[in-house]
Simulated scan of single mutants.
Amino acid sequence: MARKAIAMVCAASALFGMAACGSSSADGEKKIRIGIKYDQPGLGFKKSGTFEGFDVDVARYVANQLGYTDAEIEFLEAPSKQREAMLQNGDVDMILATYSITDERKKAVSFAGPYFVAGQDLMVRADDHSINGPEDLNGKRLCSVTGSTSAKVVKERFAKEVQLMEQPGYAECATALFSGIVDAVTTDDIILAGLASASRGKLRVVGKPFTQEYYGVGIRKGDTAFAKQINAAIEDMIKSGEWERAIEKNTEGTDYQPDPTYNPPTPDEGE
């Protein structure tokens, strides 16, 4: 959809009380507020006052297609536990923060997308070839983030004898892995790929995903018009080749490849 047409839709949405396609600052400047993660290398990462990662690249592309320049985008930190409240309170217009589409979350918010399908995987030291999948974790030490269900999935489905260590964040898990305190880290494969890329070849993703997580763009509940606009922008990003280039750029130095069974996805959620 052309930017002019999208801008007209946004204006109409405002007139009829639909969820915002953006907002204005106190001085009347147009802007769009987007929630991202600040602490996930390769996905959403704040670095010296700038923002980078695959989620950030998708967010910028979508915002540009909606008629916003990069200067009119305001990125805000969206911690996992605060995402629904941020959308409900109108603190952000949309959220791209490894935000999996689930029926439970759709009770509170709506989604556009998906823009990526992740799968739970393992990350190990680059020179460790004893772990080639979750079934190899019996007797091993596995790290995941406190409150995450990832380690629980491994223990219940694959390796009952695995030793679990919880850390407050995946960066801490990566440090524990690099130093030999644990043997593997588990979470979504693209999160692991971002960490592996940042390790400069010291860590690697096993590459055998065993779940599917559909990453969506969180928006205020019931805004089907906004969902359609975002979906059209995601579809354009995929067709243009920018989606694939963003994956490659943000996982550079790894052998990571998105699961081709599910990627790139069809963005049809929320319409």
Rank of each mutant, 00 (worst) to 15 (best):
R3G: 00
K4P: 06
M8N: 11
M8K: 11
V9A: 15
M18P: 00
S23N: 10
S25A: 15
A26M: 11
A26E: 14
E29V: 07
I32G: 14
R33W: 09
I34N: 09
D39P: 06
L43M: 11
K46T: 08
E52G: 02
D55E: 14
D57F: 10
R60L: 06
R60Y: 08
R60T: 13
Q65M: 09
T69I: 07
D70K: 15
E72L: 09
E72D: 13
I73C: 06
F75P: 09
E77Q: 10
P79E: 11
N89H: 10
G90M: 03
G90R: 03
D93A: 14
M94R: 14
M94N: 12
Y99M: 03
S100M: 10
I101V: 12
D103W: 02
D103S: 15
K106G: 06
K106V: 12
V109W: 15
F111V: 09
P114H: 03
V117W: 04
Q120D: 12
M123D: 14
R125M: 04
D127S: 10
S130V: 07
G133D: 05
P134D: 04
E135Y: 03
E135H: 04
L137T: 08
G139W: 06
G139D: 05
K140E: 06
S144F: 01
G147C: 07
G147S: 09
T149K: 15
V154N: 00
K155F: 03
K155D: 06
R157S: 14
F158I: 06
A159F: 01
A159G: 05
K160H: 02
M165F: 09
E166K: 02
E166H: 11
Q167G: 07
P168F: 00
G169I: 05
C173Q: 02
T175K: 12
L177R: 09
A184K: 08
V185H: 01
T186D: 02
T186P: 02
I190N: 08
G194W: 04
L195W: 13
A198H: 02
G201V: 11
G201C: 13
K202I: 00
R204D: 12
R204E: 13
V206A: 08
G207W: 15
P209E: 05
Q212G: 00
E213M: 12
Y214D: 05
I219T: 03
I219D: 01
K221T: 10
G222I: 07
D223C: 13
T224P: 02
T224M: 08
A225N: 11
K228V: 07
I230V: 15
I234K: 01
D236R: 08
I238S: 05
K239T: 14
K239I: 07
W243S: 13
E244D: 14
N250T: 15
T251F: 13
T254E: 05
T254H: 03
D259H: 05
D259M: 04
P264Y: 06
T266H: 06
P267H: 12
E269Y: 06
G270C: 01
G270H: 01
